[in-house]
Each structure stands twice: as structure tokens, then as C-alpha cells.
């Protein structure tokens, strides 16, 4: 009786039939969106400080930490008169993330000593050209206007901040 599988088959069919009548889990996407998790790791953002200056100092720790080697940057020295633009004396003249390589692990975020790079709940939009997936500063740095700033406060929960301060994690920081 076992050999002919019929009971098993009928059992299986009952199960599928059960699912037939179950509540469907589909979201009608454009109309209905699925809520993101608070710690969703989506497209990166390079934050500015309260004054609107870029936080990034082109230390390169993010690039070192990146397991996919998706991040490249070129450092430059801040010229006088650019204090408004760049918080530190050194800044990234180019900062590129290859979104096709990026695995959205968030290590860059952890590695960043300047609280500059964050992963957000935004999605990387699709495109038809590979080269367009290399995102430069134009796409990564948040807009200057306060109204268009990317809110990452949700990601900076107390737990996260605590976590970041833990001593044993110092090893991946430059001494």
C-alpha cells in the first residue's frame, strides 16, 4: 500500500486544497505597499551634518570593510572656503558604490567612524544599463535642503547606538 503512494498523494492534495481556500498573502503592489522593517537595508545615503556639510572624510574604512569591494573613493583636500561643504579637512572628491556588486550587508555603515554612510529603506531602482548602477556622489549624498534630507533616525535607535559603542567591536576600527 505504501508503494502505490495513493494515500500520500491524496494527503498532499488535501493540503493543497486547504491552501486553495486560505487567505491570500498578495499585496496589490503599486496600490498597496508592504511596510518595511525598521532596519531594512536598502540604498545607501551619504549624510550631511546639521550644517549641510558632508560628513564623509574619505577615510576609506567603508571600502576596506566592504566584502564585495563595491566602494571606491578618491580623497581630496578641503580648499579654503569649502568649510560649508565638507565637515573635515579631507573629503571624498568621488565616492562610488557599484550597486551591482553591493550585497547590502551594512558593513560600511558599521565601519564608518563619522556616521556618514547609512543604508536606508529606499530601493535601488532598476535600470537597463549596467554602468548606471555605479552610483556616484550625485545619487548618494543627500540633498542639501532640510526638507529633502533622508531620515535615518529610525535606524539610529538606542539599541543600535549602544551596539556601535561596544568595546569588543573596536577591532574593525582603525587604531
Amino acid at each position: 500500500m505504501e508503494r502505490i503512494y495513493l494515500p500520500a498523494i491524496f494527503g498532499g492534495m488535501i493540503i493543497t486544497l486547504g491552501h486553495f481556500f486560505k487567505k491570500k498573502v498578495t499585496f496589490q503592489y503599486p496600490e498597496v505597499k508592504r511596510p518595511f522593517a525598521p532596519v531594512y537595508r536598502g540604498m545607501h545615503v551619504l549624510k550631511r551634518d546639521e550644517n549641510g556639510a558632508e560628513r564623509c572624510t574619505a577615510c576609506g574604512l567603508c571600502a576596506v570593510a566592504c566584502p564585495a569591494e563595491a566602494i571606491t573613493m578618491v580623497a581630496a583636500e578641503r580648499k579654503p572656503g569649502e568649510e560649508k561643504l565638507y565637515r573635515e579637512e579631507k573629503y571624498a572628491s568621488t565616492y562610488e558604490i557599484n550597486m551591482l556588486r553591493c550585497i547590502f550587508c551594512g558593513d560600511c555603515e558599521d565601519a564608518c567612524p563619522k556616521e556618514s554612510i547609512f543604508l536606508t529603506d529606499r530601493l535601488v531602482p532598476s535600470d537597463s544599463l549596467r554602468q548606471r548602477f555605479v552610483y556616484g556622489k550625485d545619487l548618494l549624498v543627500e540633498p542639501m535642503e532640510a526638507s529633502k534630507r533622508v531620515d535615518i533616525s529610525q535606524r539610529q535607535t538606542k539599541e543600535v547606538l549602544e551596539f556601535k559603542k561596544r568595546k569588543e567591536l573596536q577591532h574593525n576600527r582603525l587604531k
Binding site: 493543497t16 486544497l17 491552501h19 486553495f20 481556500f21 486560505k22 487567505k23 491570500k24 498573502v25 498578495t26
Partner: peptide
């Protein structure tokens, strides 16, 4: 449709 339903889809 049936495939959808059985797989809990629409």
C-alpha cells in the same frame, strides 16, 4: 488562477 490560489496567491 488555481495555481495562484493553491500557492496562496491571487
Amino acid at each position: 488562477k488555481i495555481a495562484g490560489f493553491i500557492q496562496d496567491r491571487l
